[in-house]
C-alpha cells in the first residue's frame, strides 16, 4: 500500500476543496482568527497587505517564518503564503514550514524577470496569477495547480480582475469553437504548449481551479467575480483595510456562496461601514501596476 505525496491529483484536488470559498490576506494571528471565524476557507499569510506594499514601496519579500508559524498555530484552516516570482529558495523555505499552498505572486517584487519557479519540483502545490489564457497555461505547464486572475492588487478597483476573467474565459470559449487542425496555430499564438491548449479546447475549462483576485472589496464584487465564472475569491486588502473587518469578511463569504441571489447580497451589504478607500487603476502610473509583473 504505497502512499504517494505531491501528485498532480493531490495538488489540484486541494484547490478543488476551496471552491465556492473566500481566501483572505492576513498579517497576524488575530486577523487569521477573524478570517476563520468569518468562514474563510483559507488564509494567505503575508507581512503587508498589497495596499500597504503599494503605499510603502520598497522590495516586498516572503514573510518571516515566525509570523507564518504563529498563524499556522492559530487556525485550523489551510494557511497559504507568498513567494517572489522565480525565488525558488523562498518557496523551499515555505514548503519546509509546511504551508498548504504557495502563491508565486506578482504582489511581491520579482526575483527573476525571465523564469518562474519550476513548480514540479515541489510537494507543496502552487497558485499563480494570470491575466490571460496563455499566461495561465504557461504557469500550469510549470506545475501550477491553481490559477487566479491577477486583478490589480491593493487598489479596491475590481476592473482589472473583471478584465482578466473576461479575457481568460473568452479565450477558452474561442478555443472550444476552433477546428482541431486550427489548435496548432492557436497554441503558437497563446505561446502555450499544444497539449494543454488541446485539453482546454476539449473540456471548455482550465485543467485546474480558477479563482479571482485583485481589487475585490465588497460582497457585490465577490458575487460579480463568481458570476463571471470564478471558482472562488481571494480578498487581499479589501477586508482588513476596511472599517469593520469581521463583518465585511463574513458578508463576502455569504455573497460568494449565494452569488446568484441579489437578496442575499443586499442583506450581506447592509451596514458594513466604510470599504477600503481604493485607488483607480487608471490613475496608477504604469511602473506601479503589479498585474504587469509576470509573463
Amino acid at each position: 500500500m504505497a502512499e504517494v505525496t505531491g501528485t498532480g491529483r493531490v495538488k489540484r484536488g486541494m484547490a478543488e476543496m476551496l471552491k465556492g470559498g473566500v481566501i483572505m490576506d492576513v498579517v497576524n494571528a488575530e486577523q487569521a482568527k477573524i478570517a476563520e471565524d468569518a468562514g474563510a476557507v483559507a488564509v494567505m499569510a503575508l507581512e503587508r497587505v498589497p495596499a500597504d506594499i503599494r503605499a510603502q514601496g520598497g522590495v516586498a519579500r516572503m514573510s518571516d517564518p515566525d509570523m507564518i508559524e504563529k498563524i499556522q498555530a492559530s487556525v485550523s484552516i489551510p494557511v497559504m503564503a507568498k513567494a517572489r516570482i522565480g525565488h525558488f529558495v523562498e518557496a523551499q523555505v515555505l514548503q519546509s514550514l509546511g504551508v498548504d499552498y504557495i502563491d508565486e505572486s506578482e504582489v511581491l517584487t520579482p526575483a527573476d524577470y525571465k523564469n518562474h519557479i519550476d513548480k514540479w519540483n515541489f510537494t507543496v502545490p502552487f497558485v499563480c496569477g494570470a491575466t490571460n489564457l496563455g499566461e495561465a497555461l504557461r504557469r500550469i505547464n510549470e506545475g501550477a495547480a491553481m490559477i487566479r486572475s491577477k486583478g490589480e492588487a491593493g487598489t479596491g478597483d475590481v476592473s482589472n480582475a473583471m478584465q482578466h476573467m473576461r479575457e481568460i474565459n473568452g479565450e477558452i470559449r474561442r478555443l472550444s469553437s476552433l477546428r482541431e487542425d486550427e489548435l496548432y496555430v492557436a497554441a503558437k499564438e497563446l505561446q502555450a504548449p499544444y497539449e494543454l491548449v488541446k485539453e482546454v479546447a476539449e473540456k471548455g475549462k482550465l485543467p485546474v481551479v480558477l479563482f479571482t483576485a485583485g481589487g475585490i472589496a465588497t460582497p457585490a464584487d465577490a458575487a460579480l467575480m463568481m458570476s463571471m465564472g470564478a471558482d472562488g475569491v481571494f480578498i487581499g486588502s479589501g477586508i482588513f483595510k476596511s472599517g469593520n473587518p469581521a463583518q465585511r469578511a463574513a458578508a463576502c463569504v455569504r455573497a460568494t456562496t449565494f452569488w446568484d441571489d441579489p437578496k442575499v447580497i443586499a442583506d450581506a451589504s447592509r451596514g458594513l461601514g466604510e470599504a477600503m478607500v481604493g485607488i483607480n487603476v487608471a490613475d496608477l502610473p504604469a511602473p506601479h501596476r503589479l498585474a504587469e509583473r509576470g509573463w
Binding site: E3, G6, V10, M14, G98, D100, Y101, V124
Partner: peptide, 27 residues
C-alpha cells in the same frame, strides 16, 4: 497532516469485492 502530507494510495474497501480502490487523501 498538512497539505505536504496529502497522499493517494490503493486501499481496500470492504463492499464484498476484493478490488482495491484509489483513495485520495487531502489534509
Amino acid at each position: 497532516g498538512r497539505q505536504v502530507d496529502s497522499f493517494e494510495s490503493d486501499i481496500s474497501f470492504n463492499d464484498g469485492s476484493n478490488e482495491l480502490i484509489r483513495a485520495v487523501f487531502i489534509r
